[in-house]
Design a protein around this nucleic acid. Structure first.
Lengths: 229, 229
DNA sequence: CATCCATTTATTGTCTACAATTTTGTTGCA
DNA sequence: TGCAACAAAATTGTAGACAATAAATGGATG
């Protein structure tokens, strides 16, 4: 399973989508950055029409904001939006975990355990990039295995939006994958202990949300006029 | 609150989106119908680019299927997809109802009760069209009032998809809004009885799913070759 | 007579040029 | 000197034309 390879078979505008997504996740593109169509067209050596498709898709997934006659900007989710996204994630992920406890198969458990092993390995190697990517991948895997394609897609969208929120509001580079919370969740699923699995997932999301500065107004990249008052 | 007025301020491609959505919900456009871009461009007196935007948005919401180099077709959700949509609705709506019990305000309760009154009135008048539209509107209102914009949007999407599923799989013209199930749900929310409210919503969705022919393979509009064997 | 292949036609995908809008810099005036 | 109106530049929005692709039709062949 590949999480972010802009494979050759994909539609051409998807490679632009993925590259921008990746640059945002890697904090190269800061929130609020203007994305000029012509500029992007030159960079990727494609026509503006392609760029427009990609930007439109990015807007749909909440990663960029499209202002009519003004252009595209890397999105700046507000504190309220960030809280809402976390609420939605808690809601959906705990329900998916619940369902996974019911519909679990040996194959699903194996894939989850394999993934957790990969995470552990990345942490041991100290590879921050892999660590972050795999951490997101764990949640995508939950979405994929729970047996609800629709909610799986919703979760994929939420994970994308979360990565942007982390860029904006996470204090230190506390990219902290959490010690072995994922492993505990997998164990609860394997034991078909739905109540524990849901509680653990809830706690896991609380923990992640706790690493953010959602109370400190200064941490928020807000309008210039508010900052200079 | 307007549910389907293609107001003049909206982006032009949204009026096309809404018109097609409306035609699908009214069963004028049957599932599988081909939607030629040029044809639509002529009908709405716009350029093909606009039509493409609208079709792209309709695909995102699962109402049309876009086949590369073939064109756009009114979507034909499979039985599996239909079940998945209903699962997602049960999951999300019961959680939203739960939250609504916690965050309810007098204003929210009033709006819900007003809406239920409108529904009752439409049923008394025997206005099928209004009845169906208001029935969907009730669920959208739940999404709006629950205080999670994100999950509210997800629910909006799910309601759209559900209307297409009803077109495909509902037996007789049993458009049946259910007697007063909505009123019961509102009452439970007003009483802050979360457990009852969630159970009622679950039952309500079960009831709706029960009016479908999701078991009978014959009810499914399938490929010609399967029908003529 | 059926089947396979080439040609034709229709439809979508893409690109380039033009129009509308916003922003920015300049100039005139109070 | 500060503000406002105006003009110019840059950027997005739109439309029309062209190219690529897939279905359909007709004909040739086994």
């Amino acid at each position: 399973m590949s999480l972010e390879t802009d494979g050759p078979g994909d539609s051409p505008h998807l490679v632009i989508y993925n590259r921008i997504w990746q640059s945002i996740a890697e904090r190269k593109l800061r929130p609020g950055t203007r994305l000029k169509e012509e500029q992007l067209a030159e960079i990727f050596a494609v026509s503006r029409a392609r760029v427009r498709q990609a930007l439109s898709a990015l807007e749909r997934d909440g990663l960029v904001t499209l202002v009519p006659n003004r252009g595209a900007f890397v999105a700046e989710p507000s504190i309220e939006e960030a809280r809402d996204i976390f609420f939605a994630r808690r809601t959906i992920e705990s329900q998916l975990v619940n369902r996974l406890c019911a519909t679990r198969t040996p194959g699903a458990i194996a894939r989850l355990e394999d993934h957790v092993a990969l995470e552990r390995d990345a942490r041991k190697r100290g590879d921050k990039t892999d660590c972050v990517r795999l951490s997101g991948g764990f949640h995508l895997l939950i979405g994929e295995l729970a047996g609800s394609p629709y909610l799986g897609d919703v979760l994929r969208d939420l994970v994308s939006r979360t990565s942007l929120i982390l860029v904006m509001y996470q204090r230190r580079s506390q990219t902290d994958c959490g010690p072995d919370e994922h492993a505990d969740i997998v164990a609860a699923i394997a034991a078909q202990d739905a109540a524990t699995a849901m509680a653990l997932m809830d706690h896991h999301m609380d923990h992640l949300e706790g690493t953010l500065d959602l109370d400190d107004e200064l941490a928020r990249q807000t309008d210039l006029k508010d900052l200079l008052q």
